[in-house]
């Protein structure tokens, strides 16, 4: 046998477990590289704005519909239980707590994980398998900065804006139902709604939104950028982006809520 030929490495524990830890290590490397490249010149402002438009504006219709229906349905479902105790006047307060603290960030993040995450995963994977990323590299263009950093920045900026929007639309959905049933005015609904909402709630929701946005961007870019196996890999990257993003979003939700509650 030729002495220059490298022998394949043997797994330390097993191929699967080794691969899992290798993936975690690679993801951290990927995140470190995002931060390192994000602050290097040239800053890709135009591409970030273009991606923000793709992530934000193009998700708006779906987010509007989902946010509105969430607020409306949650109010409808809560009314019977509260009316048993004659406490329907608590509805605005209950809904605002639910929407602002939990539903708006979670619903927005899950929708974006499905719509935006799968889109980014599939797009980058298809660029990888058709050698478009290699073509950028050999043209002396940094594909990581142009494709990955811009998309992660876009999701991290756009998703918090979408979360705020979902919260607003959700509250409007709730107001519609309460107004039709209890004839509550717009002003008194919102006065009642924000009675039990504190500054910490806005901070927590803001942190969640940024973390969720960053997670969706990183996961989908990582899956797409490292896609293999030809066209089969494109579908796999899109699918894995959604599954891992959603899983991490739920984990992060629990983690952030625990921290917020310990501060409260």
């Amino acid at each position: 046998m030729d002495s220059n030929i490298e022998q394949p490495e043997k797994p330390v524990i097993s191929k699967g477990i080794d691969g899992f830890f290798k993936d975690i290590y690679n993801t951290f490397q990927f995140i470190i590289r995002i931060f390192a490249e994000a602050f290097k010149r040239p800053i890709e402002i135009r591409e970030v704005i273009r991606q923000c438009f793709q992530v934000g504006y193009k998700s708006l219709a779906l987010i509007t519909m989902t946010g509105f229906i969430t607020g409306l349905v949650f109010t409808k479902q809560s009314r019977p239980s509260l009316s048993e105790f004659g406490a329907t006047s608590w509805l605005p307060s209950l809904i605002s707590i639910a929407v602002i603290r939990a539903l708006a960030p979670l619903v927005t993040a899950l929708i974006c994980a499905g719509k935006v995450g799968s889109g980014i995963g599939a797009e980058l994977a298809s660029m990888r398998v058709t050698e478009q990323i290699d073509a950028m590299e050999v043209s002396a263009i940094n594909p990581f900065k142009f494709l990955v950093v811009t998309r992660v920045m876009a999701t991290t900026i756009s998703i918090p804006i979408l979360v705020a929007y979902t919260g607003l639309v959700g509250m409007l959905g709730s107001f519609l139902d309460i107004h039709l049933n209890e004839q509550t005015s717009f002003i008194s609904f919102f006065q009642e709604a924000f009675k039990n909402i504190y500054f910490l709630d806005f901070i927590t929701t803001g942190v969640k939104a940024v973390v969720f946005g960053f997670t969706i961007g990183v996961v989908s870019c990582y899956q797409g950028y490292h896609a293999t196996q030809g066209t089969q890999g494109v579908g796999k990257a899109a699918n894995t982006s959604v599954v891992i993003s959603m899983f991490l979003i739920f984990l992060e939700e629990v983690f952030i809520v625990q921290i917020a509650n310990s501060i409260r």
Binding site: S126, E131, A135, V138, S139, A140
Partner: peptide
């Protein structure tokens, strides 16, 4: 490496044009 790549052109099998 980026400097060198400006002097080395690579034509991919399927063109690898940006869709």
């Amino acid at each position: 490496l980026r400097e060198l790549r400006l002097k080395v052109g690579f034509c991919f099998q399927n063109g690898a044009l940006y869709d």
